[in-house]
Computed example of a mutant assay.
Amino acid sequence: MHKKDILIGLVVVIVWGLNFIAIKVGLKDIPPLLLVTLRFVLTCFPIIFFLPKPPISWGWLIALSLTLNMGQFSLIFVGMKVGMPAGLASLVQQSQAFFTLLVGVVWLGEKWRWNHLAGLLVAGIGMAIIASQQGGEMTTAGFWLVTAAAACWGVGNVIMRRATQGVPAFPMLSLIVWMGFLAILPLAVLSLLLEGYDSWLSAWQAPTWTGIGSLIYLALVANLVGYGLWGKLLSRYPATEVSPFALLLPVVGLTSSSLVLGEEISLYQGIGALLIMAGLTVHVLGGSWNIGKKSETSC
């Protein structure tokens, strides 16, 4: 990989790692579902008028929007609101890699290798340890909502594979924007039903600079810049070369949340975090190791 593209990968990791701090800050002033809705409004307009619809069917586009946008982001925003530290959220979200594997094996009949199962086992133990550590800033509801968000991401990844099979190459940015557009109305309705009109009125009448700054970061930096650069890397290199950058995301998330928000994790949460990182490393990079090369099996 070219040095310039390595730098781009690191920029994306930093942008997405800081994304969890922006969410935490924004949730102090704006209800979670409303914050997600506004994120996609700002992401989509006015840029959607200049981007053609991606060359995939409306059915697949709606399915992607429901899982990757509405499901993933609403669950993680609500989860962080009810009790999930930003750093741990950035870590637990990466369990999407294992949900992607499981759904791909069941739905598409994809093959698994020794590193997938070993990584899943190690990371699963780490997830169980973290789940058992209630108290402090983490609640049971917060943990499981963020885990459900990761599951939505995993399902969305598999839908993405099916939706883009045989489709000519197209800009990732157009897909991000059109998926966001389709999520706006259902998210707005959900916010009105669950959070109420008064929450909308309060956010409109008394905006804060931190809330506005958070929203701008989430929509323009994390969404448009982050996914735009990531899509550029995927267009130049195989996913196996690009995906290892994601291993650094929890490192950035945990470090930045500690420095900026003063978050602390317990000893057992730290052990669980290390196990998840180890499992992710084996899952992503283990296929290139010599161990178990002949153990590939189809499910």
Score class of each variant (00 low, 15 high):
residue 36 V to A: 01
residue 49 F to C: 00
residue 198 D to N: 13
residue 194 L to F: 06
residue 55 P to A: 02
residue 198 D to Y: 10
residue 64 L to W: 05
residue 46 P to D: 04
residue 146 V to M: 05
residue 89 A to Y: 04
residue 146 V to I: 09
residue 247 L to C: 10
residue 140 T to F: 03
residue 209 W to I: 15
residue 66 L to D: 07
residue 257 S to V: 11
residue 54 P to R: 03
residue 110 E to N: 08
residue 284 V to Q: 05
residue 223 N to H: 14
residue 113 R to C: 08
residue 8 I to A: 07
residue 177 V to D: 01
residue 222 A to K: 02
residue 76 I to V: 15
residue 250 P to I: 14
residue 187 L to C: 13
residue 49 F to R: 07
residue 27 L to Q: 04
residue 244 P to M: 06
residue 163 A to G: 11
residue 86 A to G: 07
residue 123 A to G: 10
residue 51 L to N: 01
residue 222 A to T: 08
residue 203 A to E: 11
residue 69 N to Q: 13
residue 264 E to R: 14
residue 167 V to T: 15
residue 299 C to T: 11
residue 30 I to M: 10
residue 22 A to D: 09
residue 2 H to W: 06
residue 7 L to E: 07
residue 11 V to F: 04
residue 128 A to V: 10
residue 159 I to W: 03
residue 26 G to M: 06
residue 153 W to E: 04
residue 1 M to G: 13
residue 238 P to C: 13
residue 146 V to L: 03
residue 63 A to Q: 12
residue 288 S to D: 12
residue 130 I to T: 07
residue 59 G to H: 04
residue 30 I to Q: 02
residue 172 M to W: 01
residue 228 G to A: 09
residue 163 A to F: 07
residue 265 I to S: 12
residue 206 A to L: 05
residue 64 L to N: 04
residue 18 L to S: 14
residue 146 V to D: 01
residue 98 F to P: 12
residue 21 I to D: 03
residue 154 G to V: 11
residue 274 L to G: 11
residue 27 L to I: 09
residue 245 F to D: 13
residue 196 G to D: 14
